[in-house]
Amino acid sequence: MTPPRAPSWWRIYRGPLVLLAVVLVAPWLPWGRFGYLVPLLQLAGIYTLLATSLTLLLGMAGQISLGHAGFFAVGAYTAGVAATVWHWPSGVAALAAVLAAGLVALLCGGMVLRLRGHLLALATLCLGVILYELILKSSLTGGAAGLYDLPEWRVPGRLGAGPAGGFYLVWGAAWLALAWLAHLSASPAGRALRAVRDDEAAAAALGVDVFVLKLKAFVASAMLAGVAGVLYAFVHSPSYLGPEEFGLTTSVLLVMMAVLGGLNSPWGGLVGALAVMALREGITLVADQCGFSGAARIEQLVYGLILILLLTRAPQGLVPLWRRVCCRAGDS
C-alpha cells in the first residue's frame, strides 16, 4: 500500500494567492455609490476570521462550540479595557487580549472537552452566555453602556487615510488565518485532527493524543476569535465598543456561517461569512428598492427562508456545491 501523495505546492496555496490578489485590489475598485459596502466588507473580514476559527474547530477537529462569541468578546474587551481603563499601549493590549482569549479557552477547554456531542454543545453554550453576562454586568467593561474612544488602528502612511486603512488590516489577518488553515489542512496535524473528528478511538489507537489535540484546536480557534475581537475593537469600531455584538445570537450565527460555507474545506468560513453578509445586505437593498424599507420583519423572514433553502439544496455547504458546478462545467 502506498501512502497518499502529498498535494503539490500549487494545489495547496493557489487559493490563498488568488484571495490575496482580490484583497489587495478590493478597496480600490470603482465602487461609486456602493462605497458604503467597503466598511461592510471589512466587517465581513472579521466574521470570516470568526467563521474560519469554527471551521478549524468544528470542521477539522469535529468539536462544536456554541459559545464562540464569548472568546470574540474576551478578545475585544481585554483589548478595550487594557487600552482605555489601564492605559496600556495598544500593541501590548492587543497581545494581552489574544493571550487572554487563549488562556480562557485553555481553562474552559480543559474542563468541557471531555464531553461530546450535545453535551459539549450545551457546555460551550453555557460558557458563551456566562462570558457575555459577566461582561454585561461588570463595571470594569462599562456594562451595557460600553467603552468609548478606543485607540484606532490604521495602515501607516498615506494608505491609512483611504478606505483601505482598516480594510487591509482586517483582511490581512483573515488571509493569514485562511492560508494557515489551508496549510494545516494538508499537513500531518490536519490529518490527525480529522482522524479525531471521524473516530476518536481509532485515532487514539494510532497514537494520536486525542485530548491534547482537541485542546490545542480549541485554544487555537479561541485565539483566532480573540484576534477578531481585537480587530473589531481597534479597527472596525474604535469609537464605541458595546456588548450587543457578543451574545448567543452571534455564536449561533458563526456556526451557521461555518456550516453554510462547508465544513470539509478550509474555505468554508470565508464563503459562509461572505454568503450570509451578502444575503443580509442584498435583502435590505432589494427591500429599499421596492419601498419596503421599514419592514425589518419581512427581511428576517426572507433571510431565514433563503438560509433553509440553501441548507436543504446544498447540505454539504456552498464550497462543495461550487466544486460540483465547476466539475460539471468542466466535463461538458
Partner: peptide, 15 residues
C-alpha cells in the same frame, strides 16, 4: 446540517 436548518426555522418562525 439538519440541526442548523432548525436554527433557520427559528429565525423564520420568530419573524
Amino acid at each position: 446540517t439538519r440541526i442548523i436548518i432548525t436554527i433557520g426555522l427559528s429565525i423564520v418562525l420568530r419573524a
